[in-house]
Design a protein around this nucleic acid. Structure first.
Length: 436
DNA sequence: TCTGGGGTCCTAGGACCC
DNA sequence: TCTGGGGTCCTAGGACCC
C-alpha cells in the first residue's frame, strides 16, 4: 500500500493567532516580532506582497510601516502555545499516528485511511477553521519531504484550495510541478547547500530528484542523500510519535539594553537558569552539566567584541535551581571581563537524564535531597497556579533593568482570567468572521 | 539607537588504546 | 633512510529546522 503522509501547517501562524481576537485586522498588513521587538518572525500575506522577508530587523521597516499602516505585535508565546495545543489535539483525531513537528506543524499518517485523501484534507481544514479559527494548508505525499513540498504548493497555488495531494497525480504532472520549484525550498536544503548545488547545475527540485545518489552522498553526506531519496518517493524519515526527552535545554535572551556590570549579568543568568531548571523538572529530568555564555553585540562593529562560554560539570546530576545557579555563577565569574557592553547571555543544561536514572552515591545526603525536591515542587506549583514568576530567587533582582522589551504585546486571551476578552469584543470577533 | 530563541544531527579531527 | 593499522570516544563546529 502506498504511504500517505500529510503535513498540516498553520498559515502565518502567529499573525493568525493575533487576528483571531482582532478580526478587523483581516486583510491588513500585520507582523509579529521576535523578543525585544527585534526582527519580523511572522508576517501576513499583505506583508509578503510588499516584499518584506521573515528575519528583517524591525527598525529597518519603520518608514515603510508608517507608509502602509503595518500593525506590529510583540510575540505572545503564551497565546500561541495555547492555540497550538488546541490545533494539535484536534488533529490527533484524524489519524492514529501523529507527529507534532513544531508549534504550527504536524505530520499525520493517512496510510490505510479509506476514501479520497484530498477530501479528507478538506475536512481537516474546515474542522480546524471552525473549532479553533486558524487557517491551515495540507500537503499529502509518500514521504515527509514530499509532503512538505506539497504543502508549499497548497499555500502558493490557490487552485488547490489549501490541500495538495501528490499521491493523486501521475508522474509527469508531479515532475512538472517539481521542476517549477527552486531546490532551496526543499526541507533540509539550506542556504549553503543550495549555493553548492547550483554550482553543480542543480537548480530545481526535479534536478535534485534526478541527481545520481552516489554523487550527492559524496558531495554532501548521508543527510542530503536521504533527502534526495525522499524526493523519489522513498520514505526514509518515519513519523516520530512520542517525543523523546530533550538532550539539552537552552535559555538565552538578548537584554533590553546593553549591560556592563557583573551584578546585572548575574541577575540575568539566575533568571535564565531558573527558567531552564523549571523546564528540566517539568520533564522529570536532571542535568549533569551547565554551560554559560555571554557576548557583546556583534552588529556594533566599532565596539570592542568579546564572547566566551564555559561548561561547568556538576558533582552529581541535579534539578535544583539553587545548585544549578551556583555552578552557573561560578562559571560566569570566570569568563566575565570588565570593559565590555554585553548584549546577550545564555545557559544550556547538558548531560540530561531521567531523574529516576540519577546515579546514587554513598555520600548523598538523602534528607537534604528530599527537602530540596519538596522546595522545588512547591515553587513550581505556585508558579503554575499563580502565574510564571510569582515566586523567584531574589538573585534575579526586582527591577530587572535588563529585561527584554515587548512594546506591543497582546492579551493572553485564552489562558489568563484577567485578560479574557470582553463580551463586546467577542461579539465583534463573531461579526468580523461573518463578513469573511 | 534598534538585528530572536531553541533545538537536532552529522562530521572531522584529536587523543588515546592495543 | 625507512616509522602500521584499526578502533573508540570526545569535542567543536557546521548545517539545518521552525
Amino acid at each position: 500500500m502506498q504511504r500517505a503522509i500529510a503535513l498540516v501547517d498553520c498559515n502565518n501562524f502567529y499573525v493568525s493567532c493575533e487576528r483571531l481576537f482582532q478580526p478587523k485586522l483581516e486583510g491588513k498588513p500585520v507582523v509579529v516580532l521576535s523578543n525585544n521587538d527585534g526582527c519580523v518572525v511572522s508576517c501576513s500575506r499583505e506583508i509578503k506582497e510588499l516584499g518584506i522577508k521573515i528575519g528583517t530587523p524591525w527598525f529597518q521597516l519603520r518608514d515603510i510601516a508608517r507608509q502602509y499602516g503595518i500593525v506590529s505585535f510583540s510575540s505572545n508565546y503564551t497565546l500561541y502555545a495555547d492555540l497550538s495545543n488546541r490545533v494539535m489535539s484536534l488533529l490527533s483525531q484524524f489519524s492514529p499516528d501523529q507527529e507534532v513537528y513544531s508549534i504550527d506543524e504536524s505530520f499525520l499518517d493517512l496510510t490505510g485511511i479509506p476514501g479520497r485523501h484530498g477530501d479528507y484534507g478538506q475536512q481537516i481544514r474546515v474542522t480546524i477553521r471552525r473549532c479553533v479559527g486558524i487557517p491551515v494548508c495540507i500537503g499529502i505525499a509518500p514521504s515527509k519531504t514530499l509532503a512538505k513540498l506539497a504543502n508549499h504548493i497548497a499555500k502558493k497555488q490557490t487552485m488547490y484550495r489549501g490541500v495538495c495531494n501528490f499521491n493523486a497525480m501521475v508522474a509527469a504532472e508531479l515532475d512538472s510541478l517539481l521542476s517549477g520549484i527552486e531546490v532551496g525550498e526543499v526541507w533540509g536544503i539550506g542556504r549553503r547547500i543550495t549555493s553548492r548545488l547550483k554550482m553543480m547545475g542543480i537548480h530545481t527540485v526535479l534536478d535534485l530528484k534526478r541527481a545520481p545518489a552516489k554523487r550527492i552522498r559524496a558531495e554532501f553526506g548521508v543527510v542530503t542523500e536521504r533527502t534526495a531519496a525522499e524526493l523519489n518517493g522513498e520514505c526514509c524519515l518515519e513519523l516520530e510519535g512520542v517525543t523523546s526527552p530533550r538532550q539539552q535545554i537552552i535559555c538565552s535572551r538578548s537584554f533590553g539594553s546593553l549591560l556592563s556590570s557583573l551584578s546585572d549579568l548575574e541577575q540575568a543568568v539566575i533568571a535564565y537558569v531558573s527558567r531552564a531548571a523549571e523546564k528540566l523538572r517539568s520533564e522529570r529530568s536532571v542535568a549533569g552539566g551547565i554551560q554559560v555564555y555571554i557576548r557583546t553585540n556583534p552588529h556594533r562593529e566599532r565596539d570592542p567584541q568579546y564572547r566566551q562560554s564555559i561548561l561547568m560539570a556538576l558533582s552529581s546530576p541535579t534539578d535544583n535551581t539553587r545548585l544549578l545557579c551556583h555552578a552557573a555563577l561560578t562559571g560566569l565569574r570566570q569568563i566575565y571581563r570588565t570593559g565590555f557592553s554585553y548584549q546577550k547571555a545564555g545557559v544550556m543544561l547538558t548531560e540530561i537524564l531521567p531523574a529516576s536514572a540519577r546515579p546514587r552515591s554513598l555520600f548523598d545526603d538523602i534528607d537534604a535531597q528530599q527537602r530540596s525536591a519538596s522546595l522545588m515542587s512547591t515553587l513550581d506549583r505556585i508558579n503554575r497556579r499563580m502565574g510564571s514568576g510569582t515566586m523567584q530567587l531574589l538573585g534575579e533582582g526586582l527591577r530587572k533593568d535588563w529585561a527584554m522589551k515587548r512594546g506591543s504585546l497582546s492579551q493572553r486571551c485564552t489562558t489568563e482570567w484577567g485578560e479574557l476578552p470582553s463580551v463586546q469584543a467577542l461579539v465583534e470577533c463573531r461579526n468580523g468572521k461573518r463578513h469573511e
